[in-house]
Simulated assay, not measured.
Amino acid sequence: MTSQEPQTQLKVQLITITIDNEGQRIDNFLITQLKGVPKSMIYRILRKGEVRVNKKRIKPEYKLNIDDEVRVPPIRVTEKAEQHLSPKLEKIAVLEKMIVYEDDVILAINKPSGIAVHGGSGLSFGVIEGLRALRPDARFLELVHRIDRETSGILLVAKKRSALVALHEQLRLKTMTKNYLALVKGDWPSSCKVVQAPLLKNMLKSGERIVRVNQEGKPSETRFKVEERFGFATLVKASPVTGRTHQIRVHTQYTGHPIAFDDRYGDKNFDDELANTKLNRLFLHAANVQFIHPKTEQIMQLQAPLDKTLQQCLTVLRQNNPKRYI
């Protein structure tokens, strides 16, 4: 007889649907309710009829209605698996300090560089898993958008599905404005205010994802404005109109002005020129975001200050280039 690890989540759950989940597909609802449970297991229990809505079997595409009663069967997740999914306490503490705004429907965090927005691809957890650990009683916490693991700055999280839907609509209509700060190689020309170059994602044999400018790619547009010049480097504000993977990083590379310390699209010689600044991370930061609050309908402007590493880099560049100009 082989010993078995203790199992958790062995109680039947009966969940009554509220307005926050009205219209949501049952499979997506279960994915948010059963954190860490593999999607294959969720579709298995749906297929076997173990999940019931109003005591009836349903299909994965079933859309929930207000007052539906959802029966969620006991889900067996080993403690070992739970430990793998549980964020480390010190990283959770860092996230708590980085929250820049929170109310009853949204939360905004100044994401540190080096932390992914969600777990996966060999990562045990990301920002969203950490926030769920910080807010164990929150019934709904979902990413509104994403930023690269190496990028820091403003990240919006919805605390209600209605807020998520409203903010996604603003992204679709391009009424949400996001501005990034990037330190790029060389003297960025003032005449280069917009880059429109289609982007195509490629997967290398190593599993690494690389994006290239390709006419067969998706239409992509980024607007640029010079903030400061340092001779061999320029601080620019980048405002993506579309939201493609690695968009700003590839568009700056495409123009011949890659971002400092970009390990995929950068320039090693440029990085070496910045040695005295002690910069050791991608200089790309989501500095601010403007949107309409999904509940109050007021215009919101949220700011995320630069971390110490980026601040120090700029301080050194300013000291070494007193005659810098806009």
Rank of each mutant, 00 (worst) to 15 (best):
P73I: 10
A260T: 14
I299Q: 11
M1P: 09
Q301D: 11
R47E: 08
D68V: 06
D103N: 14
I115S: 00
R324D: 15
Q9K: 09
K295E: 15
Q319C: 06
H84A: 06
A138S: 14
N214D: 15
R47H: 10
A138E: 13
I326L: 15
K193A: 04
R161E: 02
D104K: 05
R47Q: 05
C192G: 06
A233T: 10
V316L: 03
Q247C: 13
D104W: 01
T315A: 14
K160F: 04
P6R: 10
T277Q: 01
A138G: 05
D27Y: 03
L181Q: 01
L310D: 00
L34K: 00
F291H: 03
M41C: 01
R229T: 15
E90H: 08
K91W: 10
E5H: 06
I92G: 02
T255Q: 15
E208Y: 09
G153Y: 00
E297R: 10
P258A: 05
I45C: 07
Q4V: 07
A133V: 02
K308D: 09
K63Y: 01
I58M: 07
G49F: 00
I15M: 11
L171S: 07
I26N: 01
C192R: 13
T296K: 06
E50I: 04
N320Q: 15
K88D: 15
H246Y: 02
F261A: 10
L85K: 14
E50P: 00
R25W: 12
K48F: 04
K56P: 11
R229E: 12
K97P: 00
L30M: 06
A233G: 14
H246C: 13
R25C: 07
I31S: 03
F140Y: 15
D187Y: 13
L164D: 00
K185Y: 13
V117H: 09
E69R: 13
I292A: 06
Q312S: 13
V226F: 11
H246G: 14
H285V: 07
Y101S: 04
K193T: 11
V100N: 05
F261G: 00
I128L: 05
T296R: 14
L235C: 11
Q298Y: 07
I92E: 09
Q9W: 08
K225E: 10
T315L: 13
K88R: 10
R249G: 06
I248C: 11
V105R: 01
V51K: 03
P60N: 11
P305N: 09
P294N: 07
R139P: 03
I58C: 09
I15F: 15
H246W: 02
P322Y: 04
H168W: 01
Q33M: 10
V250F: 03
R264F: 10
Q311L: 08
Q83A: 14
R76L: 12
R281G: 09
N320F: 08
Y43W: 04
P87N: 14
A116T: 07
F125W: 15
I326C: 12
E129H: 12
L156Q: 01
K218S: 09
Q4H: 11
L181F: 02
K55T: 13
V194Q: 12
Q170P: 12
D271E: 14
L134F: 08
L317S: 11
M98V: 04
